[in-house]
Design a protein around this nucleic acid. Structure first.
Lengths: 147, 147
DNA sequence: CGGACTCATTGGATGCCCCAACGATAGGGC
DNA sequence: GCCCTATCGTTGGGGCATCCAATGAGTCCG
C-alpha cells in the first residue's frame, strides 16, 4: 500500500475536478468584466448559434436544467443580450433570440474566454493541448452519442 | 465565425467541466454505498497517507478549505473512520488518525472509485487513458509546483 | 373531447469552493 | 517574562453549478 493519497490524486475524477474548478474560476474571472458567468456565456453562445430557439431546446443542447435556464435567460434578458418573444406557432414556447448587443458581448466574451483557456493550458505544448482536447471530447460526447 | 457554440463547446474549460461533473456523479454514486462523498474519501485517504496529521495540514495538501475540513472530519469521525486526538505538543492542533474501520472503508472505497473511474474512461484505450492522466496531472500540479 | 405529452416556471436540495472572523494557543524578539 | 504576530480549529456566510419534483398552460393525436 504505497499511497492511497497518490492513488486518489491520480484518479481522473479527482484530477479533472480540480482542473475544472481552476478553469472555471479563470474563465469566470475573465468574463466577469462583461457581467456574465460561465453558464450565461454558454447559453448566449447557444442562442446565437441556434437562431431563435426555445428554452427547452437550448437546455437539451447544453445539458442544462430547464430551471437553471430560466435564471440564465432572465439575466441575459435583463442585460439586453437576448429577447424572449412568444413563439409564433406554439404558445407554450419562447422564441429566444440574440440582440445585437448580445452578439457584441458574445464576441468579446469569446475572446476573453479563449485567453483564459490559453492560460489554463499554458503548461502544455500546442500539440498536447490538442491531444487533451480530443480526449476530453471523446469522453464528453461518448455518453451523448451512443446508439 | 462558423460557430460560437462549437467554439465554446470545444473550449477546454467547458469540456473539462462537463467531464468533471459526470465523473464526480459517477464516483459519488459508487462510494455512496460506504456513506462517503467524494471529499470525504479524499480526506480519509489523505489522513491515512500522512499518518497523524493536523487538519490544516490535510487541508493544505488537498487544497481544501479549513471550514470544509471541519465538516468532512466531523462526518468521518461520526462514522468511526478517523479520530481527532489532542496534539501532544501543540494544544491548538488536532492529531487526526485513521481507525482500522477507516482503513477498511478506504480500501473498499478505493476499489469502488477506481471502478467508477474505469467506467468514465471506458471510451478511451488504456494508452489514451494514460495520456489523459498525464496531461491532467501537468495541468493540476503546474500551479502548485512552480518555483 | 380526452389523455399523454411538452413548455416555462417555481420551489427546494446538494456539493464544492471561497472569504472573514473568532477564541485559544504558540513562538520569536525584546 | 511580556507583547506581537502567526497559526489552529471552528463558526458564519456567500456564490456557483447541478439536479429533482411539481404545477399550470398549452399542444397533439386518436
Amino acid at each position: 500500500m504505497t499511497s492511497d493519497l497518490r492513488r486518489i490524486q491520480s484518479l481522473p475524477t479527482w484530477l479533472v475536478g480540480r482542473v475544472a474548478a481552476r478553469g472555471r474560476a479563470m474563465v469566470a474571472d475573465a468574463i466577469a468584466a462583461e457581467g456574465l458567468k460561465l453558464m450565461h456565456h454558454a447559453v448566449l453562445a447557444a442562442t446565437a448559434e441556434y437562431g431563435p430557439a426555445t428554452q427547452a431546446d437550448l437546455g437539451r443542447r447544453l445539458g442544462v436544467d430547464p430551471k437553471d435556464m430560466v435564471g440564465f435567460l432572465d439575466h441575459l434578458q435583463k442585460e439586453g443580450l437576448v429577447l424572449r418573444a412568444p413563439h409564433p406557432s406554439d404558445r407554450r414556447k419562447n422564441a429566444v433570440t440574440v440582440t445585437p448587443e448580445g452578439t457584441a458581448a458574445l464576441t468579446r466574451c469569446g475572446a476573453l474566454a479563449e485567453a483564459a483557456n490559453a492560460e489554463l493550458l499554458a503548461p502544455l505544448t500546442p500539440d498536447e493541448q490538442r491531444q487533451l482536447l480530443a480526449l476530453l471530447s471523446r469522453l464528453h460526447e461518448a455518453p451523448e452519442t451512443p446508439a
